[in-house]
């Protein structure tokens, strides 16, 4: 954060959002304002633009710059096995229950970012011997981050400081290092883990519902949206789930005030696991 935060006016942000909307058909008007503002400031600092006006000019005149802007404006801080207690719940309870009822299971990682959660799920499924019975779709608004997700390339520092530790809390008897190789300060996850995962570009705001799933994970994505947008997105998730299908959101996210809330039952309030109970 910098002093610049003082100088950004809501009207400047509105202008920026308007330009992006009309020229590129992405709608940021219902993003949470506090984080969106910080992201805009961050872009201005990274590219040494000095003002929102200059940022708007570059977005307008350089479509290639807009792609980079899109990558920077969305938050891509994520962890493998974030909230180990959730992953234990998945392993010990939810997944066994789901797979006992279904032959094949369709999972959607909505807002998959750099793929840490996709790989976490792939590892869990492999450990449970369920990989072959699973179809996974992983989507994100940002084309660049999807390419990164497919690579499974993670900075060694993050792998050791964050992911390894989370995994150990999830599964003390095993080590995450069994799933990656280290080269030149990077950890390269075993790509065969996601060889059957379909990665695709999808904007939760603008894109249509595309198929139905048995399980949707969308953790710490909707916190970047306003309440009205969260409400819309929850409707989309509701439409994208089979009856009895599950939705998992972030540990501090709530769907309780959304319209579609009444069509979901709470499976685990601590880990934020919900089940679709009616159409």
């Amino acid at each position: 954060m910098s002093q610049l935060i003082e100088d950004i006016e809501i009207i400047d942000l509105r202008n920026l959002i308007h330009v992006i909307q009309s020229q590129y058909n992405y709608d940021f008007s219902n993003y949470a304002i506090s984080s969106f503002k910080r992201r805009v400031i961050r872009v201005i600092e990274i590219y040494k633009l000095g003002s929102v006006k200059r940022l708007i000019e570059r977005v307008q005149s350089e479509p290639k710059f807009f792609k980079d802007f899109l990558s920077e404006i969305t938050v891509n801080v994520t962890e493998m096995f974030r909230d180990p207690t959730l992953w234990r719940e998945l392993r010990d309870k939810l997944l066994p229950e789901i797979y006992s009822k279904l032959k094949e299971v369709k999972i959607w990682h909505a807002g998959c970012s750099s793929g840490e959660e996709v790989f976490s799920m792939a590892i869990l499924l492999k450990e449970l011997g369920l990989t072959k019975r699973t179809h996974i779709v992983a989507t994100d608004i940002d084309h660049n981050i999807i390419s990164k997700a497919k690579e499974g390339k993670i900075s060694l520092k993050n792998m050791l400081d964050i992911n390894d530790k989370n995994y150990t809390r999830f599964m003390p008897s095993n080590s995450l290092s069994n799933y990656y190789k280290v080269d030149n300060n990077y950890a390269f996850l075993d790509k065969t883990l996601v060889e059957n995962t379909v990665f695709k570009e999808h904007d939760l705001v603008k894109s249509e519902v595309f198929t139905k799933f048995d399980l949707i994970l969308c953790r710490n994505v909707m916190i970047y949206f306003s309440q009205s947008l969260q409400n819309d997105v929850l409707n989309k998730f509701h439409q994208s789930l089979f009856i009895g299908g599950h939705l998992i959101v972030g540990s501090k996210e709530s769907i309780s005030w959304c319209d579609a809330n009444v069509k979901f039952g709470i499976v685990n309030s601590e880990e934020k696991i919900y089940r679709k109970i009616k159409d």
């Binding site: 304002i33 984080s35 910080r38 992201r39 994520t78 710490n220 309440q227 501090k252």
Partner: peptide, 17 residues
């Protein structure tokens, strides 16, 4: 592990930035 912001309208917003 979350940032806590307050937004206009006196609502909290969390973030993992």
């Amino acid at each position: 592990n979350y940032h806590l912001s307050l937004e206009l309208g006196n609502k909290f917003a969390l973030s993992t930035e």
